[in-house]
Design a protein around this nucleic acid. Structure first.
Lengths: 244, 244
DNA sequence: CAACGCAACTTGTACGTACAAGTGGACAAG
DNA sequence: CTTGTCCACTTGTACGTACAAGTTGCGTTG
């Protein structure tokens, strides 16, 4: 087992290198849940860094919820969440991690010309530029939960409408096009299911639902996807954890 | 116009005092959107603090999305965009920062004995222990937006039902009881307004709304508050930004 | 034996310094 | 006029120190 260490001459900041080392050690259970990680002075000695740098690294892990501090006692590995923190990660992988069996039915996947100006503006499209419209129905344990309608700029993803999209969309984007969403925004509002939507979701028309509009971006803030998800209110809640 | 300043001998950390001062100045448009705020050296001189403390204060504002930094250029006030990043901070202060005029009507504030076992369990109450029930109607620019029903353990906050709660609840908790929520969880689901709720919120019965159940905790993971917020769907969306 | 106080650990806050790196304007050279 | 250099400014990273404050255990003292 090699002990990773920081590289003082790397372009990557030292605090970031240390953060990744600690994250790795938490992931591979070198430090187990509720176990104390080495104290700040110990980490100073071990990695030859100043306390400010050590703290900046741990600060990041605290914000991500991987560890928690106790004044006067130490820093400890957090309990892995049984619930789902909302992330940009794959819906499929997340749900499998929670013990569900996810599946997907592709309702539509085709190229369109710009239609609504509002949508074109959100996607940053030039007039007349093409976009991909993708409508998918997602199931957990065979039960329909979510109706997702995605729009992506066609210029970034040529031939996307021909791909197999019954799995993870983000996996296809990463593997076929080398594009990974780095950050995103969600707008959540309540909705009431129409006749058609209720039929697809196997629910009653007029029953409450959540409409989540997601905008996903690359690290360079290029838009990757605009997605409208309609979620059955009786089957799912939106969970969000925040650290201050 | 009095210029607020930090109090070196206060129990509240200097970086937190500065953060609140800057937040207030953003709220009252001393610094306008996309305007540059004073550089770190300037803030050092003005408040007599070290750069590390200045940066820690600004770090917090960056995380909340109130300002953004540009390497080599400066730090700038973010565009409000009418949306709110969900944080544990004061509703009032955040809304003021976005250019709204918030106000609050207290509908109820009283001591109760444990009622529902489910609620008592969420609050970690012993059988027979008392709790405070607090129901408040919150307005933006005079328009009712949100109906919040909070439950707090009475043992932690003696006399809370006698306090003035038309402002920030969290400010009262901090100043009178020395309790600051450090992290929290939200559970968001869609709802449909009942006759009574619609009346209070000035909306139509049967119209869609968001129900947000918030659990707030101290750094020691003691429960501070369980709050159910009913938000008018036609007036507000829930905004969430995530960085991966 | 019990209670208190102290020492040794932890993290929290705050100060100082230094240099790297990105930005933009002034200014001189071509 | 254009280009390139340099300088003055900004934020980013990293080092050091110091003391406050919470926790725990050990040992002394009553």
């Amino acid at each position: 087992m090699v002990e990773r260490n920081v590289h003082k001459d790397s372009v990557i900041p030292l605090y970031h290198q240390l953060k990744e080392i600690l994250r790795e050690q938490i992931a591979n259970k070198t430090f187990k849940p509720h176990e104390q990680i080495p104290s700040e002075p110990e980490l100073q000695k071990k990695y030859g860094l100043s306390r400010a740098t050590i703290r900046k690294a741990i600060d990041g892990l605290v914000r991500e919820g991987l560890v928690y501090r106790r004044h006067g006692k130490g820093t400890f590995v957090a309990e892995p969440e049984g619930r789902q923190t909302i992330t940009l990660d794959s819906f499929s992988a997340n749900m499998r991690a929670l013990g569900f069996v996810p599946s997907t039915q592709v309702l539509e996947a085709r190229l369109l010309r710009e239609e609504e100006p509002e949508l074109a503006q959100k996607l940053g499209l030039e007039p007349g530029e093409q976009l991909v419209r993708l409508q998918r129905l997602r199931f957990l344990d065979g039960e329909p939960i979510l109706l997702a309608t995605s729009y992506l700029p066609a210029s970034l993803f040529p031939g996307l409408d021909e791909e197999d999209l019954t799995g993870s969309l983000y996996l296809v984007l990463a593997e076929k096009y080398g594009v990974t969403p780095a950050w995103g925004e969600d707008f959540i509002e309540p909705a009431i299911l129409s006749e058609e939507e209720a039929k697809l979701l196997g629910a009653n028309p007029g029953s409450p639902a959540l409409l989540v509009e997601r905008h996903a971006y690359t690290a360079d803030s290029d838009i990757v996807e605009v997605c409208f998800s309609l979620i059955r209110g009786d089957k799912a809640k939106f969970y969000l954890k925040h650290n201050s």
